[in-house]
Structure formats: structure tokens, C-alpha cells
Design a protein around this nucleic acid. Structure first.
Length: 105
DNA sequence: CGAGTGACCGCAA
DNA sequence: ATTGCGGCCACTC
């Protein structure tokens, strides 16, 4: 890359936008992949102000559970994941370990 | 410019 | 094993 690492926020948006369908990612992994390991909170903060075009519903916490504050509620997020083939029965992704996606560095 | 907040995570008792 | 607390970084107002 030639450079699109303008800001941490830019990387997060680009990375979330690259998450394939049927896959999920954790806040800690996204932050660590962007270069900051202890910035999982920031990823959530950016999501609050980030573009709704990005698949934020594919972003979950470290336990594989759906996040809070999602526009609509966790039921909407779980519905979106279910529509992509991800099973989240109690608002928790069961195969979360298997669906955990990671970019190729 | 400064301060506060956050859709988190890890550790300790 | 479980629960509760604090810390860390970047963004926004």
C-alpha cells in the first residue's frame, strides 16, 4: 500500500467494509489489525459515528456476543447476521470462532 | 484548545 | 468458578 493509512479511523472503516458476507470480526481484532491493540473501544466509538453503509452488524465483541447500542437493537443485528447465514441464537454467535474472519496482511 | 465519552478488554479478589 | 473494577486510545463536541 501506498498509502491509505491516513488515520486510524480510515483503516477501521476500510477493514469493516472488507468483511465478507457470512463472516464476523471482533473489535479487538479490528483495532489490533489497524495497529492499536488496546483500541477496541475506539472501534465501537467510530461505529457510532461511522457510515451505516458498513456492515457493523458483522462486528461483535470478544465473547462472540452482539454489541449494544446497535441501531434498532440486537434483534435487528441478529436478524441481519441470520440473513447472512450466521446463527446467533441468544444473541450470541455459536460458530463465532469458525466465522471469525481475518484480513490477509 | 480542553475535556468527556465510548457498540471494549483484561485482570484481581 | 464467578463477579466487579479499572485502564487504554482515539474520536467528537
Amino acid at each position: 500500500m501506498t498509502g491509505n493509512q491516513d488515520n486510524f479511523r480510515t483503516r477501521v472503516y476500510g477493514l469493516v467494509a472488507e468483511i465478507p458476507t457470512g463472516r464476523v470480526m471482533t473489535y479487538g481484532d479490528i483495532a489490533a489489525c489497524c495497529g492499536v491493540a488496546h483500541a477496541a473501544r475506539i472501534v465501537g466509538g467510530l461505529a457510532h459515528f461511522g457510515p451505516s453503509e458498513l456492515p457493523w452488524h458483522r462486528v461483535i465483541n470478544r465473547f462472540g456476543g452482539l454489541a449494544s447500542g446497535f441501531p434498532g437493537g440486537r434483534e435487528v443485528q441478529s436478524a441481519l447476521l441470520a440473513a447472512e447465514g450466521v446463527e446467533c441464537p441468544d444473541y450470541i454467535v455459536s460458530n463465532f470462532k469458525e466465522l471469525r474472519w481475518q484480513p490477509i496482511i
